[in-house]
């Protein structure tokens, strides 16, 4: 069996919130293969955001181990960490908050290229145009500011920024929940296409089981800082083995499709019809 891309082993993290100790992670373990999509679902406060931030080295855990391509990921620091960060990227929930409001889209996409010296062409502007095209955006957006874009366009730029780093793994933190309903499918399609094209692995953090069902063949349910259930998404959704999973499934809104009502019988108040 090939070595997993990401191995998370017994992560613990406790926050101090105004004197109260909050256990966000209480021994979380999971692993993720190259090119795979694993979803981590759970109620808010269950620890899924903390898990994402620990894996991204934005928050340091109290104890535990993370191996990324077999190497000790938590032991990296300084310049070595910054160099390796390229391989582990993130797409945030709120694409407006995830961009420096004063930077143009062009600058936002040039940064990762310059930091990691990744531009395939001599001219970074060409590379930016190429990145925009890969996520289905036109080149003239490069001169705009984030707030001038629509939510869907911003999330495309966020995906382009992650792609600029040529990562092995992208953490998707609720990637469509802040978007308009009519735009969500476009972004999910884009994420799917990117994975097919590049073989990147996704760690999908979400509370929306419908999105998880579409994107992730494998699923881990996190509740109160521990993984209470993990396995094939289809299996867990049809026969959940944990209360947390059951509660999430029951709570997911279902479209109630009843047979269409018979044509309205003419009523005496026909004068109301225009």
């Amino acid at each position: 069996m090939s070595e997993p891309l990401l191995q998370v082993d017994d992560l613990h993290k406790t926050f101090d919130r105004g004197g109260r100790r909050v256990r966000a992670l209480a021994g979380v373990s999971l692993d993720l293969a190259r090119g795979e999509t694993l979803a981590v679902v759970g109620a808010s406060g269950g620890g899924k955001s903390t898990l994402a931030r620990v894996i991204l080295r934005l928050v340091e855990p109290d104890r535990g181990r993370v191996l990324f391509s077999g190497r000790d990921w938590l032991g990296l620091g300084g310049a070595a960490l910054r160099r390796e960060r390229r391989r582990l990227q993130m797409v945030f929930q709120d694409p407006l908050a995830a961009f420096n409001p004063r930077a143009t889209i062009g600058q936002i996409l040039t940064d990762p290229l310059a930091i990691h010296r990744l531009a395939a062409t001599a001219d970074p502007a060409d590379a930016v145009v190429g990145l925009l095209a890969r996520v289905g955006l036109s080149a003239d957006l490069a001169a705009r500011l984030p707030h001038e874009l629509s939510g869907g366009q911003r999330q495309r730029v966020a995906i382009a920024r992650a792609l600029a780093c040529e990562p092995d793994l992208i953490v998707l933190d609720e990637p469509v929940s802040a978007l308009d309903v009519s735009v969500r499918a476009q972004i999910l399609n884009l994420l799917h296409r990117v994975q097919v094209e590049t073989g990147v692995a996704y760690l999908l953090i979400s509370h929306d089981l419908a999105v998880v069902r579409a994107m992730a063949p494998r699923l881990a349910v996190i509740d109160q800082g521990t993984i209470v259930e993990a396995g094939a998404t289809a299996t867990i959704l049809t026969s959940p083995g944990s209360l947390a999973a059951q509660a999430l499934i029951d709570a997911t809104p279902r479209l109630i499709v009843s047979p269409p009502a018979p044509p309205a019988t003419p009523t005496p108040d026909g004068e109301r019809k225009p």
């Binding site: 991204l56 910054r82 160099r83 995830a98 961009f99 420096n100 409001p101 930091i115």
Partner: peptide, 14 residues
């Protein structure tokens, strides 16, 4: 604490 600062760290900015 904003996301865009986290995003800058994620892309490896100094």
């Amino acid at each position: 604490e904003r996301d865009y600062v986290a995003a800058a760290r994620v892309i490896g900015m100094h």
